[in-house]
Simulated scan of single mutants.
Amino acid sequence: MTSAPVRVVLADDQPLLRHSLAMIINAEPDLAVVGEAHDGLEATTVASDTTPDVVLMDVRMPRLDGIEATRRICRMPKLAHTRVLVLSMFDLDEYVFHALRAGASGFLLKDSKPTDLLAAIRRTHNGEPLFAPSILTRLVAHYTARGPTAVEPSPPDQLTTREVEMLGLIGQGLSNDEIAHQLTISIKTVKTHVSHLLRKLDARDRTHLVIAAYDAGLVSARPHPSHISGRNRLDER
């Protein structure tokens, strides 16, 4: 029995790009474009009407930009399972970080190879990271540096001591394997803790756990020694 294809909505104000993306995606037996939108406002309507698995979202669009469209989509109860993948021209675009804060699960450069695009859609649908943790933490660190605030950040009260420790390590960009090695626990135990963190923090995926770690003051806003520069990479494990 063949499983249903991953349902995708395309949101971009360039008709030619939407057409090209649709051709690439629809050529795959496990993927299908179920709707298109030429701006953010239409994207929210189309997503609500079609309840897709993944929305490919451009950031800079007329009427309503991709950031606000992402925020609205991620707040719709009926779209709780829908994930947003942002298309960007630059890997350290400030708009990308704001889109991640709005609920996007990841981002991909517009000039990525078709094979990378298809892999990104599948991995986004499966809730897997799109790139090495160092890329994500570098992005978050770049845009979360703050001066002194009136309220000192602190870990959420509902987390156990071990979960706070886990959240901090995730925020540093460590993979599950690295966390298991550092804490001398099994990969299965790490995954269990990650699942608890996702549920307790109402986070869609690991991307938002990294942001939560910075918000809680568990990670300082400076690059981790393992950070690397360059394009997004679909090779995190």
Results as ranks from 00 to 15, higher is better:
Thr51Phe: 09
Arg63Gln: 14
Leu17Asp: 05
Val54Trp: 03
Arg60Ala: 10
Ala47Met: 09
Ser112Leu: 08
Pro148His: 01
Glu236His: 14
Ala120Cys: 11
Glu165Tyr: 02
Arg72Gln: 11
Leu130Lys: 07
Pro129Phe: 06
Leu109Lys: 10
Arg72Phe: 03
Ala32Gly: 06
His142Arg: 15
Gly217Pro: 05
Asn232Gly: 14
Ala43Thr: 04
Ala145Cys: 10
Thr115Leu: 13
Gly106Lys: 03
Pro52Val: 07
Arg60Val: 10
Ile187Asp: 12
Leu183Val: 06
Val59Arg: 02
Ile135Cys: 06
Arg72Leu: 09
Ala119Pro: 01
Ile67Thr: 07
Thr115Arg: 15
Ile25Asn: 04
Pro223Cys: 04
Thr45Glu: 15
Ala80Cys: 12
Val219Met: 03
Ile25Val: 15
Tyr143Met: 08
His193Ser: 12
Leu197His: 01
Leu87Trp: 05
Ser105Met: 02
Val9Tyr: 08
Ser134Ile: 02
Ile121Arg: 03
Asp49Asn: 15
Leu139Lys: 01
Arg83Gly: 05
Ser88Trp: 01
Val54Glu: 03
Lys188Thr: 11
Asp39Phe: 09
Lys110Glu: 13
Val55Pro: 00
Asp202His: 13
Leu21Lys: 03
Ile24Ala: 01
Thr45Lys: 14
Leu201Arg: 00
Pro148Glu: 00
Glu28Pro: 01
Arg83Lys: 14
Arg138Tyr: 12
Val54Cys: 05
Pro15Trp: 09
Asp93Phe: 04
His227Leu: 13
Thr124Gln: 00
Thr144Asp: 10
Met61Arg: 04
Ala213Gln: 00
Glu236Thr: 10
Val8Arg: 00
Asp58Asn: 08
Gln172Arg: 14
Thr161Lys: 12
Val84Lys: 10
Leu117Asn: 01
Leu79Glu: 08
Leu136Ile: 13
His81Ala: 11
Val151Pro: 06
Leu31Cys: 12
Pro133Asp: 09
Thr124His: 00
Glu178Asp: 11
Glu163Gly: 00
Gly103Pro: 01
Glu236Cys: 12
Arg122Cys: 02
Asp58Glu: 06
Val46His: 02
Leu92Phe: 15
Asp49Arg: 14
Ile121Ala: 05
Ala216Glu: 02
